[in-house]
Design a protein around this nucleic acid. Structure first.
Lengths: 246, 246
DNA sequence: CCTTGGCCCTCACGCGACGTGAGGGTCTAT
DNA sequence: ATAGACCCTCACGTCGCGTGAGGGCCAAGG
């Protein structure tokens, strides 16, 4: 049977490709059947079987049937060049996808900590992520993300609530005109420092990146930076009075 | 101007997308212009500008305009679900591409060491790689590849030539009926062991994988394993006589 | 008023590697 | 003769637009 040639269906079954694929390979000139019956049925011989195997093999490694044909027909670039080119392209793709993946992870983590996850939330989270990516280095981002992961969703929510609570208290004291050197404000100041510390993880570079964000952006994760700067100044007075640090 | 709405061209310039893209977004119902002039010109308003930004943002993160529309229209899955699904898909893709990349590296390395790089070479190298992938674990493959990389192309070619040379000599002695216990054959045996050692790098698991290949495959990298087994037996006799090792 | 140049419009094909019918012959066994 | 399995050749759909083709709309200059 394979002596006299096999039909498309047979070849398809034996080699695991679809009949349509074989048709397609013929129309693009990649695999022409050795002959036809009087009725017009395609007949493939052993050489065709071999070539099909080659095609399927190369297909996994290479971009595009066109290149496969060029390889098999010996035109175009040398196999090694094609492979190396492909490797380079693959690397780029992988790189881009990995960056995207990291980005998505970060966004997903933030979303998971959010109460309700609307598209608005998603969009603002994305914007924030973009801004963060412009302030922090990839390593710093990874560090922040890792710390967030350890905290967990509840931990993140709690941290955010802590900030909100602290800000409210500080604002209240400031509006009341409490002396920054008072014990009450000093207590607030140390809570403030603790929260900043919890965020930066003691990494001074992350601290300075955060500073830059505070200075240059108008809002960070829903907090108004203008007010934060004011409150921060107040807190700084308390800290300066409380501890002899710069 | 943006009060009364802007034309496609303006919107395109201001947001960095092509006019065609805006047309396309309209035909798929993703971004419908707020209105039209009497002459039929599309007019976009500020809300459209916002929506376009949203579309472009989501577009980077998500597979397909369809999903973008579902997200923006609030139908279908929740943003977080979509993101997580996308992450999973991305991971899979990255995984597959990385495996492919490793595979290509291995093939490229082998090809670089080959004298002439024909498509035949490529195909047989691929087959061999496939066989190797079925015998060695990924870690072992990585180890082998690393060792090959350190040898360099010339080193690999030299190793291959060494084997060929050694095999010829061993065969000659065997055909001549030389006693395996003779000094001459013992010298060959130690060279043999050294070459095997150089290949396995002293890793016994790689050694046993190699054994299995020798036993089960008919040819390895162009060497006839049937003959290799015979020669190996002869060498083993010499080694047994030479050293008291098992 | 007419022209010129720069907008805009609506089709509609092209890309890549096939999937999926539609509509209709061929072969084999009953 | 007929059923059922196989084969044939179109030809459209996929996805996100790019790239014309062929033709109106509009503002400014001659």
């Amino acid at each position: 049977m394979s002596r006299r040639g096999m039909t498309v269906g047979e070849l398809a079954r034996r080699s695991g490709v679809s009949v349509r694929t074989l048709h397609h390979y013929e129309t693009v000139g990649l695999l022409m059947p050795a002959g036809r019956t009087e009725a017009g049925y395609r007949l493939y011989d052993d050489a065709d079987v071999v070539r099909l195997h080659q095609i399927r093999s190369l297909r996994q490694l290479v971009f595009g049937l066109e290149q496969v044909r060029e390889l098999l027909d010996g035109k175009g670039f040398s196999p090694l060049q094609v492979i190396e080119l492909h490797i380079a392209q693959l690397r780029q793709q992988i790189d881009g996808q990995q960056r995207l993946s990291v980005r998505l992870e970060g966004i997903a983590a933030t979303l998971r900590a959010a109460a309700q996850v609307s598209v608005d939330e998603l969009l603002t989270t994305m914007e924030e992520r973009t801004r963060m990516e412009s302030y922090y280095t990839p390593e710093q981002l990874a560090e922040l993300q890792e710390r967030g992961r350890q905290l967990g969703e509840d931990g993140l929510r709690r941290a955010e609530a802590d900030w909100q609570q602290l800000i409210d208290e500080v604002r209240a004291e400031m509006e009341r005109g409490t002396d920054p050197a008072s014990e009450r404000v000093k207590a607030l100041a140390s809570r403030w420092q603790a929260l900043v510390e919890a965020f930066t993880g003691g990494n001074p570079e992350i601290g300075s990146s955060l500073q830059r964000m505070w200075q240059q952006d108008e809002t960070i994760h829903g907090f108004d930076t203008a007010e934060m700067r004011k409150l921060g100044g107040y807190i700084a007075q308390a800290s300066a009075g409380a501890t002899p640090e710069a």
